[in-house]
Design a protein around this nucleic acid. Structure first.
Lengths: 137, 137
DNA sequence: CGTAGTCGATTACGGGTGTAAACGGTGAGG
DNA sequence: CCTCACCGTTTACACCCGTAATCGACTACG
């Protein structure tokens, strides 16, 4: 099975890299004003407030962020769940590079030593849980 | 340890989605002429030969593909290993979305049921191998 | 030898992205 | 009341990307 072709492009428009940085700030804490978002990301990325404003506008028009008026300024909040975004991006990559199968991804990460001991332990645990669930079916 | 950042942006420029499709063809078999690449991808993507030529040119200027003259036409070959590309993209995603740790990626794939039984089995096996290797150290 | 086909190279063009300045409205301090 | 600071909105602009047509050179067929 799993012939499903993932009809769920419900995400709307794609969120770009720069926009993603803004989303991270909002996922970390929301709602925030534009200036507050800038406080949290402008330093890291070397942006000015103007840039953040642009990105927020674009995110709003992509329906990835919602606004709530607070006096004369806006409070911005994420309109999509981080988990959804992350899941979508992950799936996308696995599909593009590994034909939709996750094992090769895992193998690659393993080979490139991108897996820490902690990762291994956590994955091991998850694997156990999944196996049990699988057996139950 | 591992304080070192990935200094290996040696990949040169980033390979776009459309370009990636061309790379896949070349990774599958090389060298190929532009027309041969088209034979292998134009149908799938609904491209014309002209599009493939453009993409090949761009890949050449990005140093992702090399050319070898064969009479008056070119034979194109990948200049980068698929494993390197795939590894780079994977790492990139893990870094961007999961703070560089792979376990959360795995958890996400698991939750979204993106893992088949086969995946689980293979990952399980890999995990065993890694554990053994880890113990050895 | 000329003409048609084929190659890579050049040019095109609309849309997205990164990055930001300019603009217009408005609330607050003088 | 007037001006300044601050907001969101509009406009800007260069570069990348997807997608392709056109061009100039050359080969091969007739």
């Amino acid at each position: 099975m799993a012939a499903g072709e993932g009809q769920d492009d419900q995400v709307g428009e794609r969120i770009s890299d720069a926009e993603h940085a803004v989303m991270e700030a909002l996922w970390h804490r929301a709602p925030l004003t534009a200036a507050e978002v800038c406080d949290r990301v402008c330093d890291d990325r070397g942006w000015t407030l103007a840039t953040v404003k642009t990105l927020l506008s674009r995110l709003v028009s992509k329906s990835a962020v919602t606004t709530e008026a607070d006096g004369r300024r806006f409070l911005y909040s994420p309109a999509i769940q981080r988990a959804d975004y992350v899941g979508g991006e992950s799936k996308r990559l696995v599909e593009r590079l590994f034909g939709g199968r996750a094992a090769p991804l895992f193998a690659h990460l393993a080979e490139s030593e991108a897996l820490s001991d902690q990762d291994l332990a956590e994955i091991s645990t998850l694997l156990e849980q999944l196996k049990r669930k699988g057996d139950a079916l």
